[in-house]
Amino acid sequence: MAAIQRALPSEECVQNLAHVFGLLADPGRLRLISALLEGGEMCVCDLAAATGQSMSAASHALRLLRADRVVKVRRAGRMAYYRLADSHVRMLFDLAITHIGHEDGERGDD
């Protein structure tokens, strides 16, 4: 069977991919994303409690995720409510979970 030819990504694309994967490589940030997947829109205090992080650590991680458009914020008075920016984040998360869940026998030849 012939392999499907796919154009190699540009250097800029490779750098952007590396940045996104690096951002998502932190367990604390992944816990926040997971909590948002489960709970929808949440404030920092609820996210911190749900993930076992301090409010300061959760706030810092959310600032990074917001800067790279992984989460969005809605302000209501002094409160800030965070949610995932779009469905692509859920897709990345779900695909990664599916990938790591494969049995050795199900993986293609190396």
Score class of each variant (00 low, 15 high):
107 R>E: 10
30 L>I: 10
53 Q>W: 00
40 G>V: 06
104 D>A: 13
70 V>K: 06
30 L>R: 15
39 G>F: 13
104 D>S: 05
80 A>D: 12
108 G>M: 06
94 D>N: 12
84 L>E: 00
84 L>H: 11
87 S>Y: 05
70 V>W: 03
13 C>P: 00
81 Y>P: 05
57 A>S: 15
28 G>C: 06
19 H>N: 08
68 D>A: 11
64 L>N: 08
94 D>S: 11
56 S>G: 04
10 S>K: 15
7 A>S: 08
67 A>S: 11
103 E>F: 00
85 A>Y: 13
43 C>K: 08
70 V>Y: 02
18 A>E: 03
35 A>P: 02
109 D>S: 11
68 D>N: 14
11 E>L: 08
49 A>D: 15
93 F>T: 06
37 L>V: 12
16 N>H: 07
16 N>Y: 01
51 T>R: 02
19 H>D: 12
21 F>A: 14
35 A>Q: 11
54 S>Y: 01
49 A>C: 07
38 E>I: 12
1 M>R: 01
80 A>F: 10
99 H>S: 06
36 L>D: 08
29 R>H: 03
46 D>T: 04
108 G>Q: 07
5 Q>K: 05
39 G>R: 15
82 Y>K: 05
62 L>N: 06
73 V>T: 14
64 L>T: 01
100 I>P: 00
25 A>Y: 08
26 D>K: 08
53 Q>N: 07
92 L>H: 10
103 E>T: 02
69 R>Y: 02
75 R>P: 03
104 D>Q: 04
10 S>H: 13
33 I>V: 15
74 R>V: 15
91 M>N: 03
66 R>F: 14
13 C>I: 09
93 F>D: 14
43 C>G: 10
108 G>T: 06
80 A>W: 06
95 L>S: 10
86 D>H: 15
43 C>M: 09
95 L>R: 02
43 C>N: 13
32 L>C: 01
98 T>I: 07
58 A>N: 05
46 D>C: 04
63 R>L: 11
98 T>Y: 01
109 D>P: 10
13 C>S: 12
16 N>A: 09
61 A>M: 12
77 G>A: 09
41 E>Y: 01
36 L>W: 06
70 V>D: 00
108 G>K: 04
68 D>I: 02
37 L>Q: 14
11 E>A: 07
60 H>Q: 11
76 A>G: 03
46 D>H: 14
51 T>K: 01
37 L>P: 07
80 A>G: 09
14 V>I: 14
63 R>N: 06
83 R>M: 13
103 E>M: 02
55 M>P: 04
27 P>C: 08
17 L>M: 13
59 S>E: 09
2 A>H: 05
73 V>F: 07
70 V>N: 01
30 L>G: 02
47 L>W: 02
20 V>A: 12
33 I>C: 05
62 L>Q: 09
10 S>P: 10
28 G>N: 14
70 V>M: 10
96 A>T: 13
71 V>G: 02
16 N>V: 03
92 L>E: 00
7 A>M: 08
46 D>I: 00
102 H>E: 12
107 R>Q: 07
76 A>M: 10
